[in-house]
């Protein structure tokens, strides 16, 4: 049995998205050399939402964006009971010399981000790579990886799960913490 606790409601959710979009605008100004890359699967929803918000706030600045599948770059291949299904990869541009913002919903052990950086380098040598996450589960990192933009920091133990729900998929924007009893 899992106990569910809401940690972010839909209003806080939209404020968080707006704040993160503003932080990106502040640091990247006109986004000429910037590309936003969502990590499949759930980072892509987040990346789309951020892109919409930036477009609204800046009156439709052209921003390059893509989605990155990391399945074949993971470090747990053959160590899971059921293999992870590869997702669509949509990177129709080179990241050579670009400022890349990697976007994912939850940062936990840091292993996905490590895989994403490996996968990203297949598309060129970026000038810099930043990391944006909606939830940072600090105190649970396995690798020395820290985000540049954080929606909310959550202290949780490894048996707990943080789940981000999206309006376009799950009917409502919210973030919940699942505790197994």
């Amino acid at each position: 049995m899992e106990k569910e606790k809401q940690i972010v409601n839909s209003k806080q959710f939209s404020i968080m998205i707006e704040r993160l979009a503003c932080q990106l605008i502040e640091n990247h100004v006109n986004f000429e050399e910037t590309v936003l890359v969502g990590i499949q699967p759930r980072g892509v929803n987040f990346s789309k939402r951020i892109l919409q918000k930036i477009n609204k706030l800046t009156y439709n600045t052209e921003i390059q964006s893509g989605s990155l599948d990391i399945t074949f770059f993971r470090d747990d291949f053959g160590r899971r009971d059921v293999p992870i299904e590869a997702q669509e990869l949509n990177m129709n541009f080179s990241v050579e010399g670009k400022r890349v913002v990697l976007i994912d919903d939850v940062l936990f052990t840091g292993r996905s981000v490590r895989s994403a950086m490996d996968a990203l380098m297949n598309f060129g040598r970026p000038k810099e790579v930043e990391l944006m996450v909606l939830i940072d589960r600090r105190l649970s990192r396995h690798l020395p990886i820290e985000p540049n933009y954080v929606g909310k920091t959550v202290d949780s133990i490894s048996s707990e799960k943080v789940v981000v729900k999206w309006k376009d998929i799950d009917k409502e924007d919210k973030i919940i913490l699942l505790k197994s009893e």
Binding site: D69, T71, F72, F73, R74, F77, G78, E85, A86, L89, S94, D118, N122, F123, G124
Partner: peptide
């Protein structure tokens, strides 16, 4: 379905993934 993903990969500039390194 898996081959669809690999077909995309072998048409990238870098055609290699590290999956079976062990």
């Amino acid at each position: 379905k898996t081959a669809d993903n690999f077909k995309r990969i072998i048409n990238q500039p870098i055609k290699k993934v590290p999956t079976l390194r062990d």
